[in-house]
């Protein structure tokens, strides 16, 4: 690939806006995703990307494009609250609670959308968004949400870390586990809302789950995991955008942006997986070698003295 092509996003205004949006979302999702991974909440993130659907649909039906943000926000808030409440009931398992909320909300969304004319077009937009139509206002809204979510994580990150590792000890130490869970659910919900209009549910989910998994594959501590997650999210956003633009404009191969970014992320994950596989095999061989060299001499027992 010609290196000047990599500069393309900085020259074409709508690409620049798309890149800024993807970068903000990369930082946000990379960080939030690390906590999603610690708590193993990937399924919750998945559910949230679907449960904001009725909010998006109703918001759009009532107020057009302007209503989408508010609609999604309300739906996400309802989901986060309902999940926190339902999972407190011991007889409803977490997964069952999720499935109930997910299917109920998604069905409401489909009912609303099916009453409008452009059913499939709306669903398409919902899945993959319209990153190339990102407006200045949308960038500002996304940035505000990102700052808010990152502030919440900065203030409660340590407690969330302890709660993820050892919930019993967190309770015993007097940390408010219910409030922490609600806070994280709300942060995930807000992240989904901020991202869903521009990049769609599929890409939001990919951005929340894949970079953190790459971080988890390559890093052994929380700091590096977040750093690698954010780095790979931002880098893959940039690469995916550039690849899809170049293919579409220069090679007449229509590559939609959202799916291209998702595939770039997945490729990065597979690379990371391959890389650790190689180093692990090398490491094993090295440590086996070291062990073979370092076998200590057996201890010599002192002879009993003065036996009768």
């Amino acid at each position: 690939m010609d290196t000047t092509l990599l500069m393309e996003p900085f020259r074409v205004p709508y690409l620049t806006r798309a890149l800024i949006e993807l970068t903000i979302l990369g930082v946000l999702c990379g960080t939030v995703g690390a906590f999603v991974a610690l708590r193993r909440l990937e399924f919750v993130a998945d559910a949230l990307t679907h449960t904001v659907f009725p909010g998006v649909a109703i918001g759009f039906a009532l107020q057009g494009a302007d209503g989408v943000f508010e609609g999604a926000l309300i739906a996400a808030g309802i989901t986060a609250g309902a999940l926190t409440l339902l999972t407190r009931n011991r007889r409803t398992s977490d997964d069952a609670a999720l499935a109930i909320v997910l299917t109920a909300m998604f069905s409401i969304g489909v009912v609303v959308v099916s009453r409008s004319h452009s059913y499939t077009a709306d669903l398409q937009t919902f899945l993959f968004g319209q990153i190339l139509y990102t407006s200045r206002t949308q960038i500002i809204e996304t940035a505000v949400v990102a700052v808010l979510c990152l502030a919440v994580l900065a203030a409660s990150g340590r407690e969330l870390f302890l709660r993820s590792f050892d919930v019993e000890a967190a309770r015993a130490a007097g940390h408010r586990v219910g409030a922490l869970d609600l806070a994280l659910n709300l942060v995930i919900a807000l992240t989904v809302v901020a991202a869903v209009r521009t990049i769609g549910t599929a890409l939001v989910l990919a951005l929340l789950v894949v970079p953190a998994t790459i971080g988890r594959t390559l890093g052994g501590r929380i700091g590096p995991i977040i750093a690698i997650g954010v780095g790979s999210a931002v880098l893959c956003g940039y690469l995916g955008l550039t690849i899809s633009y170049t293919a579409s404009v220069d090679h007449d191969l229509a590559l939609p942006t959202g799916p291209t970014v998702v595939l770039t992320l997945v490729a990065a994950y597979l690379l990371a997986l391959g890389a650790t596989g190689v180093t692990r095999r090398r490491g094993l061989r090295a440590s086996a070698h070291a062990a073979a060299v370092r076998i200590p001499a057996p201890p010599v027992l002192p002879r009993p003295t003065g036996s009768p």
Binding site: L38, F161, L162, F165, D166, R216, G219, G220, R221, I222
Partner: peptide
């Protein structure tokens, strides 16, 4: 993903 010292710091 946590070290012994990080656990103790908790």
């Amino acid at each position: 993903p946590v070290t012994a010292r990080q656990v103790v710091l908790m």
